[in-house]
Simulated assay, not measured.
Amino acid sequence: MAARGERKPSYPVFRVETWDRFLKLITGPTYLNWAFRGERDERWPLYSSLSRYLRDFGVDRRAWAEQESRILRIFKRKAHQFLDKPPDSDDDFQWLALMQHYGAPTRLIDFSWSPYVAAFFALERTLADGVVWAMNPARIHTGHSPERTRMDPRLRGNFRRYFLKGRYRIIWMNEPQTMNSRLIAQSGTFAVPGVLDLPVEEILGDRNQENILAKIVLANPVREVGMRELYRMNITHATLFPDLEGLAQSLGYELEFHWAYDPRTMRPYRT
């Protein structure tokens, strides 16, 4: 429920208290073809890492386009030292996906076609209530936006034309032509906002979002059962990040889990 003076969101907000309730919600017919993103704090607006960085460190909005262009240019000029086969120099979207892969702040927002992968990212490191955002790619484009094929940032020049200058209040969603191992493992896709100073829910806020966006709040008690069930499904850092870094990160949850007993209570499981 919205607080007094707060505008009630036009997208549905669900608060689930159990893992079973989450499963019932995301396996129903409504969200079959949607994409999902997990965040470990449901209070966070749906911003890109680039938006958060620019806002948090006080970069003047008038400099945002030039600074984004600058880090893209720097990465292109220097990354070749570490790449066997760099993307084409004018394939900006492929370069952005590569930057995202290695942790650079970009305007790309990670989503997954799997609600279970999103739930993992919502629950794995949270101490609060996590959230799974759901978005319907088929409905995110408005009649006031350029046509989807025309604005496709994978096409030469389109990223700079439609996105970099921040003139279009739009969201585009899809994958790069060439997908890396992490994107494949996570059933990943990207949402690309046309502006950086608004979160996704506000970019889409000029119309009824009932069939466009949904927010599923996972109350903290969901974590214990949810993480155990995701582990049993083999959804872990080691499988979602199939490299040495992912393996190392996966050991955190191993501290909480044992096949023979509950490490929190030291009680053996029933046989």
Score class of each variant (00 low, 15 high):
Asp20Arg: 10
Ser89Gln: 12
Thr189Arg: 03
Asn180Val: 02
Asp92Ile: 02
Val16Ile: 12
Arg62Asp: 15
Asp197Cys: 05
Arg70Gln: 14
Leu198Pro: 06
Glu224His: 10
Leu98Arg: 01
Leu204Cys: 06
Arg232Ala: 14
Leu23Gln: 15
Ile171Asn: 14
Glu39Tyr: 02
Ile171Met: 15
Gly194Thr: 11
Asp88Leu: 14
Ser145Lys: 12
Phe82Ser: 02
Ile71Trp: 09
Gly188Leu: 07
Leu72Gln: 10
Met233His: 06
Met233Phe: 12
Val117Arg: 00
Ala219Ile: 00
Pro153Ala: 07
Tyr162His: 14
Arg62Trp: 09
Ala128Leu: 07
Met179Ser: 05
Gln177Lys: 07
Leu218Phe: 04
Met227Leu: 15
Tyr231Arg: 15
Leu72Lys: 12
Leu32Gln: 15
Arg270Val: 13
Arg150Ala: 13
Gly103Thr: 01
Trp44Val: 02
Arg270Gln: 11
Ile71Leu: 11
Gly205Cys: 02
Leu23His: 10
Glu175Lys: 09
Ala79Ser: 13
Tyr116Phe: 11
Ser10Gln: 08
Arg61His: 11
Val222Asn: 04
Trp133Glu: 03
Ala185Arg: 08
Gly5Met: 00
Pro153Leu: 06
Gly103Asp: 00
His141Asn: 06
Glu201His: 05
Ala185Gly: 07
Ala260Thr: 08
Val13Ala: 02
Leu123Glu: 02
Gly28Asn: 08
Asp41Arg: 12
Lys24Pro: 00
Asp20Cys: 03
Glu201Phe: 03
Ile26Phe: 12
Glu6Pro: 00
Tyr53Thr: 05
Tyr162Pro: 09
Asp197Pro: 09
Arg40Gln: 12
Asp90Gly: 00
Pro87Asn: 13
Thr271Trp: 03
Asn234Ser: 09
Tyr102Gln: 01
Asp243Val: 00
Leu213Gly: 05
Arg73Lys: 13
Asn220Ser: 08
Gln249Thr: 01
Arg148Ile: 13
Thr189Pro: 06
Arg160Ile: 02
Ser48His: 09
Pro86Glu: 13
Lys85Phe: 04
Ala104Trp: 09
Thr271Ala: 11
Glu39Val: 05
Val59Cys: 06
Ala2Cys: 00
Leu46Asn: 07
Met151Phe: 08
Arg207Leu: 02
Arg15Ala: 04
Trp95Arg: 11
Thr106Glu: 10
Arg223Val: 06
Asp152Tyr: 11
Leu46Ala: 09
Leu83Thr: 05
Leu196His: 04
Leu155Ala: 15
Leu251His: 10
Ala65Pro: 13
Ile140Asp: 00
Pro45Trp: 03
Ser112Ile: 06
Glu68Met: 04
Thr142Ile: 00
Asn234Ile: 00
Gly205His: 04
Thr189Gln: 06
Arg167Gly: 11
Trp44Arg: 07
Ala118Thr: 06
Asn33His: 05
Phe163Arg: 06
Ala65Gln: 15
Leu247Lys: 01
His141Ala: 08
Leu98Lys: 01
Gly252Phe: 01
Arg148Ser: 10
Glu124Pro: 01
Pro29Leu: 14
Ala214Asp: 04
Gly166Cys: 06
Gln94Pro: 00
Asp110Gln: 07
Asn211Gly: 12
